[in-house]
Structure formats: C-alpha cells, structure tokens
Design a protein around this nucleic acid. Structure first.
Lengths: 344, 344
DNA sequence: TTGAAAGCGCTAACAT
DNA sequence: ATGTTAGCGCTTTCAA
C-alpha cells in the first residue's frame, strides 16, 4: 500500500492551494499572514494523515539536502568512531543527516568519495584529509561549500580546522618516560607525512633534545597490513636491543606493537620496558600492565567540528575567517611506564 | 565556480536532443539504435567536460536512489563494523551507496531511523532489528521494499534473514569448557529477549543438561552502562564463588567481565578460572591469557546479506521466498580455557 | 491572504 | 534513429 501522500492531497482536502500548505509547512505562515485557523487545520491534517514532503523533490527544488558528508580515515578506529557518533548525534538534533565513509587515507579513494558526496548534493563536508587531495578540497571551498578539516591540517587547504596539540601531546609523553628514568626511548610511527604524525615526531624529538638523548625512530609504511607491521616492529626491537621504552604514535600501532612485543617476549611486557601510546584505546586499561596513553579530547573535537559546520551552514552567518582550533591532549599515566629500576 | 553542467548543455553542444543523450547515458544506445558514431561522440564529450547527471533529479524521476539503508545495533562494535565495511564495499562495486546508522537496539530510535530512511528514499533495508519494530518492518515489506534481516530473527517479521547458528556456537563453547574439566560454568548475558541471545542461552543450557550440570546465568540489563555492568558482574562473582568457568554471551560483555574479574582479582585471571566469549574480538588475542571465543563468520554474513539484497533489488528477479540463511560459527580455542587442574 | 504557474534536471512514452 | 514533451513533487515569484 504505497499510497504516497502529496502536498496536493492535503491542499485538496482542505480546499486550499498547494502554495498555502507549502508556506505553512515551511514555517512561513506568519510571514505570509495566513490565518491561524487555517494554519492549524493544515497542521492537524498533516499530522493526522502522516504526510511527509518528498525530500527528493524538496532538495531538487531548493538545492539543499540537509545532509553533511563526513569522511574519516577509518571508521572502525575507536577514535574516529567516537567522533563520528558524537557529530552525528548533534547533527540529527539540528535536523541534519550525516553520511559517512572511510578514506583509508587513500587520496584516490578520497577523491572518489568527494565526488560521490558532490553527486549526492551534501550541504557540507567534514574531512580528515589524506595528502594529495588539496586541489579537490580547495575546489570544494571555491565552489562555496562549507568544509571543516579534522585531526590534521594540510598545507594548501585554507579552511576551518579542528586539531589537537600533537606536539605537546607527544612531548609530554616522552618527557614522562624520561622522568621515569628511561633513556633509550624509541618512537614507532608511520611513514605518512601527515601534519599530525609529523608533529608527534617533533614533540618526541624536542623532549629528547632537551636532555641530549638520541632519538630512535621506526617508520612503518602505512600500507603495511597487520602482519607486516608486526614483523617490522619485531625486527626493529631485535635490532635495537638497548631500547628501554617505546612511544607508539597511534593506538593501532600500539596494539600491533604490543602483539609484537609479546611475541618477542611471551611472558608479557618485559618488566623494564616502558610503553606509552599516543591516542588512547579502550583496551589499554584492560591489558596487563595497563598502558599509559595520550588521550585526545574526542568530545571537544566533535563539538567544535559540528558547531563550526552548523555555523557555516547557516546562511545568516557571513563567511567567517578560516580558523584553526587547537585542543589540548591529556596524558593518562597507567602502569606501563613505571619508574625504571636502575640496574646497578 | 559552480557552473553546473546540464544534460541540455551536452545535447546543445552536439546538436542532438536531450533524449538521445539520456538514452546513451543510460546504456540504451543499442536498444534505441543510436549510431555508434553519435554514441561515441556523446560519451567523449561527457567525459571531457565532466558532466554528471543530477542524482536528485534522476531519483525524483525514477523513484530509485541506488542507496541501501543499513541499520546495525552498534557500528562501533567490531562485529558490526566489519560487516558494515564488507557490505559497503560490495555495494559500491555494484553502484550502490550505503548509508548506515546504529539502532542502539532501541525500538523507538529504530522506528525513527526507518522513517528517516524512507524519507531519504533508500531502495532497500538491511536491519539488525531490535524488538518492538515488527510492525514498522512489516509495513516496509508490504510496501514492497526489499528487507534483509541480519544477526537475529524476529517473530512476526517474514522476510529474508542471515543469521548464525547461535545455539551450536554456545553449545560448542560450553562443551569445550566441560571437556576441559570445568564443572560450574556461568553464563553472563543480557536481559534482551532477542533471538540470538536466547539461542545462545539455550545452547549453553543444552550442553550443561547433557552432563547434568547446573546452569548459573547472570542477566545484565542491556541498558546498563559500562560501570553498572561491571559492578553487576563483580557482585555476581562474589556471590557465586563456586564458579570455575564463565562464558560471556557477547564480546563487549566479555570485555567488561574481564575488567570485572581483574578488579576482583588484580593479579589477572585466576589461574583456575576458565573464560570464553561468544563473538570474537581483536583484543582477545592480545590479552594474557588470550581468550577462547566463538567466532562468527563476518565475511560470509556480509556476503550473503549483500548478495540477497542485490538480488532483491534487481527488478528482473521475481520476489523469491523469504529464506533464512544460517551460518556456522567457529570455536577458537585460546589460552583462557586450559584443562582444569584437579585440586585433589 | 491566497492561488496559478514556472521551474529544479532528468527519464521515457509517444511521435516522427 | 532521434526529437517533443509530459511529468516526478516541491518551492516561490508574481499576480490577484
């Protein structure tokens, strides 16, 4: 029984014109000085028969879909999943739908997705940009679409952006390790040149430099799958035995790394190896020992992002300056970074 | 600049009619006996100038959006996240978009989402139904929409369905625990009356009954948050000290449960407590000990679901019988279920 | 205050 | 083989 109701059905039943119904439905009753009585009757009938305007027709006509495209690196990463969930919730409250997808940090894929979103006529874009999509995103901006970048900045894209203070986060974690007495602190990261990764590296280096310690950086190619990554990390540990602590640049690298370590050392974490991770993860407090981590303020990130986007989406607001919001991280000290026993 | 190209622009530039272009674009060139030459010229120009049909107009006209609505219980649960990812990939290959969201197993929310999907004019629905949405889903079916249920069945909804053999899965896990010498095996589940949960319970009971062992079931209210759940589990363990093994009914309950146990017993898992979980989880192989689990065939589930959906979506296929596909689970034996030491 | 009518951009039945 | 044209269902200008 797909007897779709039309606006004309409503109009007919009340012996008024389509226009009138449309005005009322779009909250222009007052503005158009339609009698309160009629307004009410229309609303009542609409409610009763459950009439819902055809969104496709509406969108075709207005050019607006009340949909926001959200592209994160990997929706199955808890960090992004959380942000997505929070953004979605706020968006819904404001009458916006979210459609999301994962870029997998692949620029070609991302370009396709952007193009898909354009085809879908999303009203705004929230993106964690991989490298190599500068042009496409700039085009979006030039074409007048609201674009908010999250988690990382990309040189060459001039738009609103919500990131965290990666440098300080990594710096603090490294400093903490040093304070606990670790001297040979490794940093395991990806080979990606993304701003957030580079800044974490920089924070790590900066902290070490202040104490004249030598950095030991392992860059695992981003494209490596779990197994390759694990192998790479294992061999890194084998080659550099002097290491007494390690800071992982992302939570998923930490998870792989811990697997690597436990493979290398089936008894669990060597008692004298300090471990910390940039980016928290649910399981870190489950593991033995629990893992020290740099937590990112997901809620604040999500709120800033969606607020910015809603602001940009509101035609009343003049196009404001492209501004970058930098949020602080929080070092959560757990048991994986105990004071190092000095083996005399 | 947003100089949107129209089909009429293409037509004009080639001095042909809109119809011709439309036919060619929709692969009806042969059928309409349009000259190969023209066909090629049109395709070339379309390619060159990057013309893309307006999907809104297309959809408004055809009534099809080439979009599938996917509603899972919780997209941040790895089980569902995986299935979603796999489904999405296949869908894209076939030219379909996926829009997903989480029901949180709340029937009101789910009803709203269904209604939202209707408003969006999705072509088909893939749903992990909570209870209480029977009517709404049946309405969907009656209105002629393809509907495929996943993960659980609901009495009163007669449609295609892809589930796993929950009973056997739980039975096997329980049997395994008994074989390892455990005698007082608890089952920690939710109070949800969903088919998959009930079947897991039944599998557990069945295995125990065969050996005349007594069941010990803890039902944690689904609405409990992590903290409440944890507390509940802790007190259950405290009250029932004789327990020597526990089977968790879902992976997230297992995660909470392990937290509970470790809180109860900070040294880690008591050496003589067997632990297994229905539903695998990435971290199970990271924990000490690694956790025995009943793995669900996510890939097979996703494939069956999307194949079914694509089949239903194809107008060439007559509406086939509503069939239920039941897939087998796999028991992955890890270190958390060692042979029990008989303490003489 | 309300209504008629012109599109939004496309598809497809019908005509040629 | 290709063109004309009537919608899909809605918003909104313009007229009354």
């Amino acid at each position: 029984m797909k007897k779709k109701l039309l606006i004309s059905d409503i109009a007919k039943q009340l012996n008024v014109s389509i226009t009138t119904v449309s005005f009322i439905l779009n909250g222009k009753a007052k503005e158009k000085r339609i009698s309160d009585d009629l307004t009410e009757r229309v609303q009542k009938l609409v409610e009763e028969v459950g009439y819902r305007p055809n969104q496709l027709a509406q969108s075709l006509r207005t050019g607006k879909t009340r949909t926001i495209g959200l592209m994160v690196e990997d929706i199955s990463n808890p960090f992004f999943a959380n942000i997505a969930r929070l953004i979605e919730e706020r968006a819904y409250q404001e009458g916006y739908k979210i459609v999301y997808c994962s870029t997998e940090d692949d620029s070609d894929r991302t370009k396709e997705l952007i193009s898909m979103f354009r085809d879908m006529h999303v009203d705004g874009y929230i993106i964690t940009p991989p490298q190599g999509v500068e042009e496409d995103v700039e085009k979006l901006i030039k074409d007048g679409f609201p674009v908010v970048l999250v988690d990382r900045q990309v040189a060459g894209i001039h738009t609103h952006c919500v990131i965290v203070d990666n440098l300080s986060g990594a710096y603090n974690a490294t400093a903490h390790l040093m304070e606990q007495g670790y001297q040979n602190i490794a940093f395991v990261t990806t080979d990606s040149r993304q701003s957030q990764m580079l800044q974490r590296l920089e924070g790590y280096r900066k902290a070490l430099a202040e104490k004249q310690l030598e950095p030991a950086v392992l860059e695992v190619p981003y494209r490596y799958d779990a197994k390759q990554m694990l192998r790479k990390i294992v061999s890194f540990f084998e080659e550099t035995e002097s290491i007494d602590a390690v800071l992982f640049a992302t939570n998923y690298m930490a998870v792989r790394g811990l697997e690597a370590i436990s493979q290398f050392n089936p008894q669990g974490l060597p008692a004298n190896l300090g471990v910390a991770s940039y980016d928290d993860h649910d399981v870190f407090k489950l593991l033995k020992p629990t893992i020290t981590a740099v937590a990112q303020p997901t809620e604040a990130i999500a709120n800033h992002v969606i607020n910015l986007m809603l602001h940009l989406l509101n035609p009343k607001n003049k196009t404001s300056e492209a501004d970058t919001i930098v949020l602080p991280t929080q070092l959560i000290i757990r048991n994986s970074t105990p004071r190092k026993e000095v083996v005399a």
